[in-house]
Simulated scan of single mutants.
Amino acid sequence: MQDSLFKRTAIHFTHANGIPAPSYQKFFACFEDEFDLKSIPMIGLNPQYPITHDWRYLVDQIIDDIEQKFHARKVIGLGHSFGSLLTLMSAYKRPDLFSQLVIMDPPFVIGSRSPMFEIAKKLKLKAIDQLTPAGITLKRTDHWENHEQAYASMRHNPLFKHFDERCFQDFLACGLQQDIKRGGLTLAVPKIVEAEIFRTVPAWWWRTPRKAPAVPVHLMSAQNSPFYKQGFPQGMQKTYQINYSLMQGGHMFPLEQPEKTAELVKQIIARQKNI
């Protein structure tokens, strides 16, 4: 069994902000026959890797996890949203760890807005909560009496309403935990942690060499993604020569269409092997 795993192509996956990796089980299942896929269950909660203005320690967490889990094997870096940007940043720092990247809808702050965003961030201006989802996140309900109440409360929330049903059930299973102080259930990733990650999205790209990391990279976005509508993928293609493709759906497409997304990811992986 161990030998067969080592013969498979290695994938390291990094989850979206506030959406623990086990939420993606249906997506992961599509890779089981051909790939050895591993991930960090929840990012942002380990005090050894604190959240800072440039995510440097979170990047170190990705690098350390790859080194620990794959033992000198090169990996395909695969991530969603926050996780895709961490994966990309890790590849800039340690390209030797990666064979290729597939980044799904990264919040890549690019262009003229970058320096303004960075100033607002460093000065900790209240505007940062309006410029990012942090403000909405802090207003989210984060306490329920039981799973039934949590399901009814969140299922039609704009973030979750298009989730595949099994993906949503998997999110409830791993994304909720016992609330020690109030009783009932609360979020496994506290909303203050999720908001802090949103507030600290790096915007240093305007100061870096304007090229992709030294491995093949492809970006996936969706027609209804706010990042696509704001021109992030288009800007990355123009400035960094990182090509992109579009899916139907919104920003959470890997959890809305897990099987279709996985199939497209595998097609991209196959194409990039020949680059």
Rank of each mutant, 00 (worst) to 15 (best):
F6W: 11
T239P: 03
D65I: 10
T239G: 03
Q178I: 14
K38G: 05
A120I: 01
P41W: 07
D33M: 06
K191D: 00
K211M: 05
P233I: 02
P258Q: 12
I40H: 07
P209S: 12
F13I: 09
L97W: 06
M42V: 15
F227E: 01
N274W: 07
D36V: 03
G184W: 12
P41Y: 08
D105K: 05
I51E: 07
K121M: 11
W55N: 00
D60A: 12
K38Y: 02
M252F: 15
E259L: 13
H80D: 10
L255Y: 03
F27E: 04
N274E: 12
D33P: 05
I103K: 00
R155N: 05
A195H: 00
C167Y: 12
T132L: 01
F198P: 03
Q267V: 07
I192L: 08
N46Q: 12
I40C: 00
F227C: 09
T239W: 11
C174A: 14
A152E: 13
P213L: 08
F163H: 03
Q267D: 09
P106N: 06
R182I: 02
I192G: 00
G83T: 08
P158S: 10
R207N: 13
D96N: 08
P95V: 03
D3P: 09
E145Q: 15
K124Q: 13
H71D: 03
I242R: 01
P20M: 11
L255N: 06
R73P: 04
Q230S: 12
K121F: 08
P202M: 03
